[in-house]
Design a protein around this nucleic acid. Structure first.
Length: 281
DNA sequence: ATGTCATCCCCAGGATGA
């Protein structure tokens, strides 16, 4: 978001355009009471329930769901703070899937305390996910480019965070709990970015990074019908510096993911679904 | 490739974070 307050009109338009069942937000930069004051009515009017974990000034994550939002947990058990806990993780079970909305610490520079913090935080996250249920989605601003193909020029990132071996190993350890990078799996050889610096016309030259990931466990990954980055949402006036990552899931064999109570206006109780095609340009 | 955009302080623009 880079401030949900600054992004509110674009967020609401985007929700109305895409109609996602579940939304994971990062960098809301808003305390929970201020979030509710700002967006509570707008979200409730769109049938979203919320799980919030914010701060006054920095960080901040949220989950919005139309398919239930149960067993909310804020933070990552066992993760360090800097030095105090930061609002970087919220998890809940939505439509039968354990969903984690994450804002991984940036790391700043490989020789910094922030980098040590980032790696320790990721290790704690891995342990939480490893202890989680079979159906999980771990997503958000991971602040790691999984491979050199996920940055516009690997040479430009030598010595920087987001691409170092220890960060990629921490991500690999997270994936080794049984998760799939569903966007890369769908677009194995495409140039696919989710973040472009505001400066120097980087977006318009498509000089970006793919650091916003959706990682899905086996039974969830098997249901992925579309996985793409909504590059259009980065265009125009007043965007965030990140673009949303969108995943469409088929209904589960047991019927999970769908309204907990079918909308009364729909007598068949069946939810119309469309598969969104990639729109990466 | 550091050119922007956001936060805070609290009214002017510097410090900080990404």
């Amino acid at each position: 978001m880079n401030s949900v307050k600054q992004r509110m009109p674009r967020l609401l338009d985007w929700l109305d355009e895409r109609e996602p069942d579940v939304v994971c937000l990062q960098e809301t930069k808003l305390a929970d009471d201020a979030f509710t004051t700002l967006l509570g009515k707008e979200l409730a009017g769109r049938a979203y329930e919320t799980a919030l974990y914010g701060e006054v000034q920095w960080n901040g994550v949220a989950l919005l769901s139309k398919v239930g939002i149960e067993d909310v947990v804020t933070g990552v058990a066992g993760a360090p703070g800097f030095p105090n806990p930061e609002a970087r993780a919220v998890a809940a079970t939505c439509g039968g899937i354990r969903i984690h909305s994450l804002y991984v610490p940036n790391g700043r520079a490989p020789d910094s305390d922030h980098y040590v913090y980032k790696l320790a935080w990721l290790k704690a996250l891995r342990d939480v996910v490893a202890a989680g249920p079979a159906e999980q989605i771990v997503c958000g601003d991971m602040n790691i480019a999984p491979a050199d193909a996920d940055v516009f020029d690997p040479a430009a990132f030598v010595g920087s965070t987001h691409v170092t071996a220890p960060e990629r190993e921490a991500l690999a350890a997270l994936l080794a709990t049984g998760l799939h990078d569903v966007v890369r799996d769908r677009w194995p050889t495409e140039r696919v970015f989710s973040y472009w610096d505001y400066r120097a016309g980087m977006f318009h030259q498509d000089l970006g990074m793919r650091i916003d990931l959706v990682l899905a466990s086996d039974p969830v990954a098997e249901r992925v019908k579309a996985a793409w980055i909504d590059r259009k949402a980065r265009k125009g006036t007043g965007p965030s510096d990140h673009a949303p990552v969108i995943i469409d899931l088929d209904v589960a064999p047991d019927g999970d993911i769908g309204p907990v109570v079918p909308p009364p206006s729909n007598p068949r109780g069946a939810r119309k679904r469309t598969t969104k095609l990639p729109q990466n340009r």
